[in-house]
Write a protein that binds this DNA or RNA. Structure first.
Lengths: 156, 156
DNA sequence: TATTGTTATACTCTATAACTATA
DNA sequence: TATAGTTATAGAGTATAACAATA
């Protein structure tokens, strides 16, 4: 049948909008999902006033104290020029600090302040909770691992 | 052992950078993969001078000729205010046109021009080729379906 | 009153070039 | 010469408010 669920006569019934030409594209679905997840992250972290990029910087410094700006920036795919304002913002909030490393006076070694350590502790806990909810939505750790593996394949 | 693959004595050897604190986050992996796929799309479609958003608009108009601006924009998550410049660009290139619909003189009905139809034909072919390569990277149609299903679960 | 398209505007993110101080 | 950080700037993409025309 051509018009199985019609609610008006076929002649006057408006054709339903068909989004499949873009919805079935992997890249499009990827983008929509990513935007949604980031929006949820932003909402969730509003109380910390922390954007995804800011969280990722703090998490990387926490795991790699003393790293150079360029190292953190490159690991996150952020241009070093754009990283300056980002780290300035975190520094102004008293979360991070630049220290002069022994070997190379051109570079800045990045560290969390004591206040930053405490802040990251809470942020990491919130992120772990958010991550757990994502895993639950996917249907468990196995599905999560599958997704991560598929994303890796796609990114190669 | 604490330092299994050391190439210098442990005392002076620099600790390897550890990106796992962000790399293991679903949303982060999602974003990096999406950016990579979009970059590949942009490179692939450079000869058509077509960005992802522009392609998605053309594809939706092709599948839903006569749609209102707001319908296309909403389907793609684009604010109608921002859609104006986008559709103006496509119209100036002679690919789409606004026609006055019978019922409602406030709205514009969007159509492809004959030139636009030809252009979309080529763009769809290029997209199909790109999509096939993505599916191949994932390991086949079954893996592709798995990925799409997981993304849907995550987006709910 | 509400909706459609539009303009203006601002804010974020990203990209490039050029400068400085060090190496 | 090359590298690390910085500044300035320009371009996308996105968000909101307000307006005219029409419903």
């Amino acid at each position: 049948m051509d018009n199985p669920d019609q609610t008006r006569p076929a002649k006057t019934r408006r054709q339903r909008f068909d989004p499949s030409s873009v919805n079935d594209i992997i890249g499009y679905r990827l983008r929509r999902t990513q935007l949604r997840i980031f929006q949820q992250f932003i909402t969730r972290f509003a109380e910390y006033d922390l954007r995804p990029a800011e969280y990722s910087v703090l998490a990387l410094i926490a795991a790699n104290p003393g790293s150079k700006q360029t190292e953190i920036a490159e690991a996150l795919g952020i241009k070093r020029a754009n990283f300056v304002a980002l780290i300035n913002g975190l520094e102004k909030r008293g979360l991070t600090e630049r220290r002069q490393p022994a070997g190379d006076r051109r570079s800045n070694a990045l560290f969390l302040t004591p206040s930053g350590e405490k802040f990251v502790g809470k942020a990491n806990a919130a992120q772990a909770e958010f991550e757990a909810e994502c895993v639950a939505k996917l249907g468990g750790q196995k599905a999560r691992d599958q997704l991560m593996a598929l994303l890796d394949l796609l990114a190669d």
